[in-house]
Each structure stands twice: as structure tokens, then as C-alpha cells.
Design a protein around this nucleic acid. Structure first.
Length: 556
RNA sequence: GGCCCCGUCGUCUAGCGGCCCAGGACGCCGCCCUCUCAAGGCGGUGGCGCCGGUUCAAAUCCGGUCGGGGCUACCA
């Protein structure tokens, strides 16, 4: 075994012993049953919706047990770090109300960024080296590639283990020679040799029985890097122990690493944590489903949800329903406050279904009051649709009247907003600034109705002459019936069907003429309600072009 | 290749040996309402991957098989 003096010379002379860290991060004083959970984002500048999913579950466990939820940035791969990644996370967590109890701003178990914890990892790595539970490895990339090539040829499992592990039992003098020559090395964990099985209980999947790890995994990356950082495995064991984490919620791609992790906890003398491996969010593709992909699927990114304007509550409700089917049966309000139970978590790998999300979202928005919608809409628009934001600010009263249409004083509220970006399509026409008036009786938006231009113009003139804006809905609509009858429209679609040649259309077509003139579309909420919301002046202004009015008349 | 996880309507799920010739939600289809659309009301479509076994009885337990996914990195 390598002499302690040689081992120690590899680390800073003033590097504290492991005891120092144990004292520095004492066990937490928390009530019985309190869970300490964490989320460990890697700062690649991209926030995956699965990250929000995992963070939400972690945080929920802590909140409902009176524990602590912390965020620890896993930036041990410096080549993948992106500068503004942290602000991206801040934005996502903020949007989804996933504030951490502890992070670099507040918390006594920091720093909460792995690149700032190098000394801690070094202390423990040195300790493992001193105890012979780890060793220096000088194998080059080429040598490693050769080893696995030979293993494949020999049909034995690939990896760095047993007799294949070049430096596992190297002569100390050979190690010293390499060191003297300045050769770069990594620190490897000396896996306890004997093959066998390990059992552990996953909080979601129950008792699992896996093959024991025998790979001498790298725990400290190459010495030729300016900052010698640990691999995920080593950092996980040390950080989660020192931060006194009780339950680790992570993707099930980590399942096969558990045997290694358990060995590390054991070698380090730590109590193991409880694991909860969650199924990945997937997407339907021809022939099956696959993990949501960062590159191929826009809906994999939280930015998609934020920019499109899905309310956080709707997304959270949807995600909670995926985590615990039971919560999907509860009304939104209750589902958001009821605890997620790991034991009730699905193990499959749910498909993210945007159609379902939109249904939830539409329901949620429909339950909001007009002012509440306006408020949320404005916040969204300020960031993603400046023009709409300006209009909403300038026309606040009109916006409230528009949002009240078929929403206030009705039994079932209109559901035409699934997300904030639907606003323009659904409500844009209320606002003169966003509305494009018809150009005249020949406007192409009127063409599908099949009404001759002269009839259209005459009908509009008749409607405008003596037009009374107020009254109740019935009276108001009566004016359209009157003008329609006068211009050869059938009083009902049925009547028109019976005698298509006797009419230019039915009341349906006549109404649609008005609708297109007022809203620009053949689909809209109740016409009477819209007319009252925009007011008489605007109503007349929009109807006039239909009458084929000359420009001079319009401008006065 | 090796190891591991998973498999109920198109999708998310309930189901933990009899309450299930499988329940709910979303979607889809139809009807009703109706000046359009959205919504709403009512009805319908549709599933235990497959094969064996255990049992009086299986979606539920066991074995196999097929299918999907993951790991097998000095990425997390």
C-alpha cells in the first residue's frame, strides 16, 4: 500500500480531516419523521420538465413531514456548465412555486454548489486512500478502451474490476514513479471483491435485489484538471450524508448505480439514505414511447410551458396527478395541498399528454374571476407578448368587460383560454388595436357564407338604420332578424333547407355576417354580449364597412 | 452481449385472489341545446401483451415468452 506521506502529498497541506466536516455539519434537529430532501440540478442551461417533476415531489415530501427541502447544484462536469443556467433554474422554480428552504442564499449546510465543496471531497478521498479503500489509477483512455475491447471479445462483463484493473494492486514503487513523472491520475474506489447480491428497499418500488457492484468506479476526476472534482457517485454519498438528507428522489436511470452507492456509504462509514426512484416522463412516438428528449421535444423544456403560458397551478396539478393517480381525482385546490405518497407512485413512465394538460388548464382558468385572469394575463404578456400587454394596460375596463362575457352571471363559464397565449385568438377582436376590420361586403372572410355582396350591404344598412344598442338580448337580436327577413334570409335554417332557392340564406348566415364584421371570425362568444362589451360606437364602426360605406363616410 | 426496471381502454390511471363479463378522467364518435364557436347535458366506442401453471375462483400469485425503457463514462 502507498505510504501515507505520499498520499498526503497529493492534497493541500492544510486540508482538514473528515472529522472536521462531521462536526461542521451536525445531524439536524428535526421532529420525528421529518424528511430532508433535495433536488440536484446540473447547470447545463436547460431545465427539463422532469426536473420540475422531481423537484416538486422532493419538496412536497419535506413540506408535508415538517422537514427541509434543499437545492444543490451538481456542477462537477465543468465542461457542461453554462453561465446563466442558475438564473434559468431560478426562473423555473419561481414560476412553479418551488422555492428551496436551503440553497446558497440561506442554509447552514452549504455551500450548495459542488464545485465549491472540493475540499470536502478531498478530505474523504484522502481518507479512503489512507485506508486502502481507494487507489490511484494512471490508466489512459487508450488502455481503458483496450480493456473493454478485450472483455467484449472474451464475452465477460466490461468494466474496470478484478484482474482487469491495472492499478488496483499496483506496486507502490510503480505508483511513485508515475507520480514523479507527473502523470495524471484518477482516484478509484476499491470495490469490495466478492460477487453477490444486494437488497435494499426503494420507497416506490419496494424490495429490490440487484447484483453487487464490482467496478472500481472513479470517485475523483483527473489530477490534470485545475479543480479536482468528484464524480456524481462520490459527491452523492458525501453531500447527501453531510447535508443530512434522508430521502433521495431521482430518476430511475440511477437504479443500477445503487449497489455502488451503497458500497460507498459503507466504505465512508455513513448511514445510507432512503431511495425513491421515479419513472421518467415519456412521449408517444410511432412504435412505442420514449423518454422526453431535450433535443427533439419542445415540451420537454419548462420554457415551453412558461412561454406558452400554462398557469403553474395547472401544470403542477397535472404533474401531481401523474405522481399519484389519487390526486388526479381530487379537485385542483385539494390536489395541490394533499401530500404526495411515494408508496402510491406509479412505476411505469407516464406519457406527457398536452391535450389533458390543456383540459386541466382550461378548467382552472375558467374557475378564475375576470380580474384574476387579467392579472395573470398581464404578467405573462409583459414577458411574451408586449403588444398585448400594452393593449391590456390601455384598455383595462374593456378587457374586464371582454373577460366577463359568458363568464360572469352564467351557469357554465366559457372555456376558451387554455393558456395565456390563447388570448389573442380568443379575445383579440375586442380591442380596436388588435382587430382588423372587414374591408367591405366583398371581404374574403365573408366569402364562405355565400351571400351576394349587394345583399350583405343592404342587410347591414338596414340593421344600422334605426339601430338600438341597448335592450335585452332578445330585443337586440330581434333587429338582426328583422333586417335579415327584409333582405330575403329565411327565418330558420330548417326553412332555408326546405326551400334553398327562395332565400339568399338563413338567419344563420345573416348572423354570421354580423359576427365576422364584429369579430373577424365565424366563431366567437355570444354576439349580443360582445356588442355590449365593445360599446355602440365601436359596434357601428365595425358594421359600417359591411354596408359598403365609402371611405369618406367611415372617417367622419 | 450482461445486469436492472416496467407492461390494465388511444392516453393517465383505479384495481393488491371472489365486490371486475374491469371503474374513473382526457380524447374520439353520436344526440340534445343553438344565430356561430367554445362550454354544458345525455349516450356510445375502447383495455388486463402472449402462453402455461397454482386455485373452487386470477387483471391480481408463480414460471416462461414477447414488447418498451434504463445502466454498462473521469455525464449527471
Amino acid at each position: 500500500m502507498l505510504e501515507h506521506a505520499v498520499i498526503d502529498s497529493l492534497f493541500a497541506a492544510d486540508l482538514p480531516d473528515t472529522d472536521h466536516w462531521a462536526r461542521r455539519y451536525p445531524p439536524r434537529q428535526l421532529p420525528e419523521g421529518a424528511e430532508v430532501t433535495r433536488f440536484g440540478p446540473s447547470p447545463t442551461g436547460y431545465v427539463h420538465i422532469g426536473g420540475v417533476y422531481a423537484a416538486m415531489i422532493s419538496r412536497d415530501l419535506a413540506v408535508h413531514s415538517g422537514g427541509v427541502y434543499l437545492v444543490r447544484v451538481e456542477d462537477t462536469d465543468q465542461s457542461r456548465s453554462v453561465d446563466d443556467a442558475l438564473s434559468q433554474f431560478a426562473r423555473a422554480f419561481d414560476y412553479f412555486h418551488l422555492a428551496a428552504d436551503e440553497d446558497d442564499e440561506h442554509g447552514a449546510y452549504g455551500p450548495y454548489r459542488q464545485s465549491a465543496r472540493a475540499a470536502i471531497y478531498h478530505s474523504f478521498a484522502r481518507e479512503l486512500l489512507r485506508q486502502g479503500k481507494a487507489y490511484l489509477c494512471f490508466a489512459t483512455k487508450d488502455e481503458l478502451a483496450q480493456i473493454s475491447a478485450r472483455q467484449e471479445a472474451a464475452k465477460v462483463p466490461t468494466g474496470y474490476y478484478g484482474e482487469w484493473a491495472l492499478w488496483r494492486d499496483a506496486d507502490p514503487s510503480a505508483v511513485r514513479d508515475r507520480l514523479d513523472a507527473g502523470a495524471p491520475y484518477v482516484v478509484r474506489f476499491r470495490a469490495p471483491g466478492e460477487p453477490g447480491r444486494v437488497r435494499f428497499t426503494d420507497a416506490i418500488r419496494g424490495v429490490l435485489d440487484l447484483e453487487a457492484n464490482r467496478n472500481d468506479a472513479v470517485i475523483l476526476k483527473s489530477s490534470d484538471q485545475p479543480l479536482r472534482l468528484p464524480t456524481y457517485h462520490f459527491a452523492h454519498a458525501i453531500d447527501d450524508h453531510l447535508m443530512r438528507v434522508t430521502t433521495v428522489v431521482r430518476g430511475d436511470e440511477w437504479l443500477s448505480s445503487v449497489p455502488l452507492h451503497l458500497q460507498l456509504f459503507d466504505a465512508l462509514g455513513f448511514e445510507p439514505v432512503t431511495y425513491a426512484h421515479i419513472a421518467p416522463l415519456t412521449k408517444q412516438v410511432p412504435g412505442g414511447k420514449r423518454k422526453l428528449s431535450k433535443r427533439k421535444d419542445p415540451e420537454a423544456s419548462v420554457d415551453y410551458y412558461i412561454e406558452t403560458g400554462y398557469p403553474a397551478e395547472a401544470v403542477l396539478y397535472y404533474l401531481r396527478g401523474l405522481a399519484n393517480g389519487r390526486l388526479a381525482e381530487l379537485p385542483l385546490e385539494e390536489a395541490l395541498s394533499a401530500p404526495i405518497r411515494l408508496s402510491q407512485s406509479g412505476v411505469a413512465g407516464p406519457l406527457v399528454d398536452l391535450v389533458k394538460l390543456e383540459d386541466i388548464s382550461a378548467d382552472y382558468i375558467a374557475g378564475l374571476s375576470g380580474p384574476a385572469i387579467l392579472d395573470a394575463l398581464r404578467t405573462w404578456a409583459a414577458e411574451y407578448d408586449r403588444e398585448a400587454a400594452a393593449v391590456l394596460d390601455a384598455e383595462r375596463d374593456l378587457a374586464l368587460r371582454a373577460l366577463a362575457v359568458e363568464r360572469e352571471g352564467v351557469d357554465n363559464r366559457r372555456k376558451d383560454l387554455r393558456k395565456w397565449s390563447d388570448f389573442r385568438r380568443a379575445y383579440g377582436f375586442f380591442f380596436a388595436q388588435l382587430f382588423v376590420p372587414v374591408t367591405g361586403p366583398t371581404d374574403e372572410r365573408l366569402a364562405p357564407l355565400g351571400v351576394p355582396a349587394q345583399v350583405t350591404a343592404s342587410f347591414a344598412r338596414d340593421l344600422l338604420d334605426g339601430y338600438r344598442h341597448g335592450g335585452d338580448g332578445g330585443e337586440w337580436f330581434g333587429q338582426i332578424r328583422e333586417a335579415a327577413a327584409k333582405n330575403g334570409f329565411a327565418a330558420s335554417p330548417q326553412e332555408y333547407r326546405r326551400n334553398p332557392d327562395g332565400y339568399v340564406g338563413s338567419i344563420r348566415e345573416a348572423s354570421q355576417l354580423v359576427r365576422v364584421a364584429i369579430t373577424g371570425s365565424t366563431r366567437s362568444p355570444d354576439l349580443y354580449a360582445i356588442s355590449q362589451a365593445i360599446g355602440e360606437t365601436e359596434f357601428r364602426r365595425r358594421l359600417e364597412p359591411l354596408a359598403g360605406a365609402d371611405p369618406a363616410r367611415v372617417s367622419t
